[in-house]
């Protein structure tokens, strides 16, 4: 009798643990990530290089989230989000380099400049839909490096040479390397940004955003001020991507006009599409994907070329393009959407 009681007791305990994990998995994951510098760094299993990689993944996840908010939840296509990434990065770099600001103080400032930039670009974009908006933002993306090299900005931007900044050391004498410290900072910013995004989407504003995406005219008859919402969402989206840009400048310690070429805008778009265009977890998947591709596409393409005995050396972009097109057929809602659909099907059967 006593044994059965105790065994059901442990069973219930295990079930409780599982239920706790299922309910709180997100917080557990975040806690795990936050402890990584202590676990991995101290035991030496995870090198500083990997902390930099993880930080970059999170940074791209924030950038992709910005595009997700605009395209996925508000239905406005942007091929030019690299521009806002650049504005954020340059704001941070200039403030650190010339005004001597501490790095954390540049983030709110990057948010402000990016909101203004996004809002202003959103105003003419109001009249544009679908392909036309894609075209206008495409033009923006192509022109960004040139705008950054503009002669009268050179005093701030240092022209083609770009700006070198230095990574901050951890404060209070914490026993962390600067890569580990920046990883924690980036993680904290990301958690905050995703939390804000989730609350925003659950709010009245969020429902207005999706209503505009689904049927702008119906939304406006319901009393939603469509132009104002669209312009503001453009600004908010720019804030996300701009903060990602600022973080990127801080952990990468360098900005230059040619790091913000058209390819960057494409990478952000690809991340959003691959992850899942109207999904917050999708933004995380997209961010991881963008950084992985940037790091490993070369090696992967070489392997594929060798495996199928191609007579020529393929370039990563070929794989990129094919992956994009195939994904559009097989998983139009991205990996997050595909996984969700798979999960539903498995539960039903």
């Amino acid at each position: 009798m006593a044994t059965t009681v105790s065994s059901t007791g442990t069973e219930a305990g295990i079930q409780n643990v599982f239920a706790f994990i299922r309910r709180r998995w997100l917080w557990l994951l975040i806690a795990f990530l936050a402890l990584l510098p202590i676990i991995g760094g101290k035991t030496g299993y995870i090198s500083n290089f990997w902390f930099l990689q993880l930080s970059l993944m999170i940074v791209y996840a924030i950038a992709v989230l910005g595009l997700n908010l605009l395209t996925g939840f508000n239905g406005q296509i942007s091929l030019g989000h690299g521009a806002f990434f650049a504005v954020g990065a340059y704001t941070a770099a200039i403030l650190i380099d010339q005004a001597g600001w501490p790095f954390w103080a540049t983030l709110p400032m990057a948010a402000v400049t990016c909101f203004v930039a996004g809002y202003l670009f959103g105003l003419p974009a109001l009249r544009l839909e679908g392909h036309y908006l894609a075209l206008a933002t495409f033009a923006l993306a192509v022109a960004v490096p040139q705008i950054l090299k503009y002669r009268h900005f050179e005093g701030f931007t240092n022209g083609v040479q770009g700006i070198n900044i230095f990574k901050a050391d951890p404060p209070f004498g914490l026993p962390l390397s600067s890569d580990q410290w920046m990883f924690l900072v980036v993680l904290a910013v990301a958690v905050l940004m995703f939390w804000i995004a989730r609350n925003l989407l659950d709010s009245r504003t969020g429902r207005a955003m999706t209503a505009i995406r689904d049927h702008a005219m119906a939304a406006s008859t319901m009393g939603i001020n469509v132009p104002r919402y669209k312009a503001v969402v453009f600004g908010i989206s720019a804030i996300y991507t701009g903060i990602a840009g600022a973080l990127h400048a801080i952990i990468f310690e360098f900005v230059s006009p040619d790091s913000f070429r058209f390819e960057l805008s494409i990478a952000i778009l690809v991340g959003a599409v691959v992850g899942g265009i109207a999904s917050l977890p999708g933004a995380v998947i997209g961010g991881v994907f963008v950084q992985m591709i940037e790091k490993y596409a070369d090696a992967l393409t070489k392997k594929i070329s060798a495996a199928v005995h191609l007579p020529l050396e393929l370039e990563p972009w070929t794989i990129y393009g094919i992956a994009l097109i195939v994904l559009m057929y097989t998983m139009p809602t991205g990996i997050a959407g595909g996984l969700a659909a798979l999960w539903r099907r498995m539960r039903r059967s």
Binding site: L79, I266, V273, I322, L324
Partner: peptide, 9 residues
């Protein structure tokens, strides 16, 4: 997105 894919290819 498909056009962008074609561009890349």
């Amino acid at each position: 997105v498909v056009f962008i894919g074609l561009l890349a290819i």
